[in-house]
Design a protein around this nucleic acid. Sequence first.
DNA 1: GTCTATACGCTGATAGAC
DNA 2: GTCTATCAGCGTATAGAC
Lengths: 210, 210
Amino acid sequence: MPYLKKSTPEKEPVDCRILTAALDLFVERGFHNVSVHDVQKSANVSIGSIYNHFGGKEGIAKALYYHLMKEFEEMIDEVISEDLTSRERCNKIIALLFEYTETRRNIISYMLHAKHREFLPDEPPICSSSPFKAMRNIVQQGIQAGEIRQGEPWIAAATVFGGAIRMIHLRLDGVIKEPLTNYYDELIDCIWSGMNPETLPEYSTQRSVV
Amino acid sequence: MPYLKKSTPEKEPVDCRILTAALDLFVERGFHNVSVHDVQKSANVSIGSIYNHFGGKEGIAKALYYHLMKEFEEMIDEVISEDLTSRERCNKIIALLFEYTETRRNIISYMLHAKHREFLPDEPPICSSSPFKAMRNIVQQGIQAGEIRQGEPWIAAATVFGGAIRMIHLRLDGVIKEPLTNYYDELIDCIWSGMNPETLPEYSTQRSVV
DNA sequence: GTCTATACGCTGATAGAC
DNA sequence: GTCTATCAGCGTATAGAC
């Protein structure tokens, strides 16, 4: 399960050390509250080295963005490549996102806030980037296959993934105290069955669709 | 309908001019890419005046945050004070949020991203702030009243409001091109009925619950 | 209370030795 | 490719006149 592989910080190539150090610092203090010197110290590299590899602080942020985006995309692609229904694919993506929110907190945090922080002015917003497009495509295919209820594509995608993304935000902000994985089954059931009291909870019977 | 009242920029008291100018600049360029001089010029005030009123750039951001938070809270309180069911209250809040996303874009944007931008380090994250708590309370009451399906409070709140908030983000990022108000009815239906294809669309028959 | 002019620290970036 | 030393500019904040 090599989704979003973690780079071991010691004895990695220089550019990897820089990126991992920068990731942690950016997420903890925020991009603008981190100086190149901070990254340099934290990564045990010289300033010159940083400028040689990435051309500056913004260069680091961009490289980080592209790198994580690519891994995210690969994760989605792997889910797509498996033989699953569209609904199962949606569920699996949510399960993976929850899992990585717990185990790779900073990666998820950086990706979710990348555009809203003020670096990367020329980059397209993350929600229009290709992994998110792929997620919307999955929902689209589900609608065409009759697995997901008919409707406007944006609304469908937002309804399927909106609750999960919201919970990730709440968890990252420390508002939700328990691991997200505890909430997975019930959330999945809410997504598909809705919040109407007439719809009976089903999640106790259809556990672990993943 | 005085929710989140707009302050007319001309001939307002000085501190109001500063706040409205700062709001626009902060949202457009990002907090850290705006200097005090920028605010000063845009508001037609002197730097000294800014420091007299707010004590610095962070002071402006905080005052703005508290001011908007208070108005947001009043909006929620007004909805609560009306004689509505919990579900209608949820719907109305979503309708209002959509409306203000279209008409007061910068206010919504600032509030949504306030914590994720790097100012206000000591402030509690916005999702744990009182208006958001009030929204979760409404959901809770709906569950107790049997209007909303039983379940874990966080999941219930995230499912009810998550899709809407997600769409607001997509709209603010320019990914969704149409006004959000166009999507209101169908989204509401998805929230309560779920994405299961067996649930029939109802929104054509129960329009304008607000 | 409002303004202008000024100070000074920090930070991104470069030069040049090794 | 890596490092240290150094620079230049920006941006916050203050001092002090009005």
